[in-house]
Simulated scan of single mutants.
Amino acid sequence: MPQVSMTVNGKPASGEAEGRTLLSQFLRETLGLTGTHVGCDTSQCGACVVHVDGKAVKACTMFALEAEGADVATIEGQAAPDGTLNPIQQAFQDHHGLQCGFCTPGMVMSAAALLKENPKPSEAEIRDYLEGNLCRCTGYHNIVKAIMAASGQDVGALAAE
């Protein structure tokens, strides 16, 4: 079976992967990084979003072998080594941007990619960017609010839903 090597959350990682092994499966089953959730296996829900070489990618649509030599960031690498949440994670907590939590890793990773591209997105831009991420619990209002707060914007003007 082929070997695949990559950097995951700043550390070298490698393992065996069949040609059909998805990146999400490799991260979860081979590397034990179960924070990357798999909700649909069809690229519909966004629960599996990770960053590959700085770009948001749905890990259920990429083969592990395609990530050979890549720099991969998962939800496990977002907090500081001492466990302190990063600003996006903290904003999700502060603004109740989660309920069951299943979609949260993908939402946080998508939000990080958005804020890297657009440090001060509007509400409409956030909602547009999150189109590929499904949440069955929250109605998105508090997720949008959390992302705006993480970007340093005033969320007091957002209408309550």
Rank of each mutant, 00 (worst) to 15 (best):
C100I: 04
S110M: 14
V72M: 05
Q44L: 05
E76W: 12
T36M: 05
G97S: 07
T36G: 04
F26N: 01
C48I: 03
Q78A: 15
A80V: 00
L23W: 05
K116F: 04
I147P: 01
C135N: 04
V72I: 15
G77W: 07
T21N: 01
I143P: 13
T104A: 11
T138N: 12
P81M: 06
Q99P: 04
E131M: 01
C135I: 09
L98G: 02
C137W: 07
H95L: 06
L134T: 02
L114N: 03
G97C: 08
D71G: 06
T104K: 08
N133L: 06
N133V: 13
C137V: 07
P81D: 10
I147V: 15
P105C: 10
V52M: 15
A73V: 14
I88D: 04
C40W: 11
G35F: 11
Q99S: 10
T21E: 03
D41W: 05
A91F: 02
A59E: 11
K120A: 15
V144E: 08
P81K: 06
G152E: 10
A73M: 11
C40E: 14
T42N: 13
E76R: 07
L33C: 00
K116H: 11
Q90T: 01
G139V: 05
V38F: 09
R127N: 07
D71M: 00
L115I: 11
H96W: 12
N133R: 06
E125F: 02
E29W: 09
F63N: 04
I143D: 11
Q93K: 13
G139N: 08
D41Y: 07
A80H: 08
I143L: 03
P121M: 09
D53N: 15
A113H: 12
F92Q: 04
A70S: 13
K120Y: 03
A17Q: 00
A80E: 14
L65D: 00
L115Q: 00
G32Q: 08
V38T: 13
A150S: 12
S110Q: 07
D41Q: 13
S43L: 00
K116T: 14
N142C: 07
A47V: 04
G152Q: 06
R127S: 10
A79N: 13
L98I: 10
H141K: 02
S24A: 15
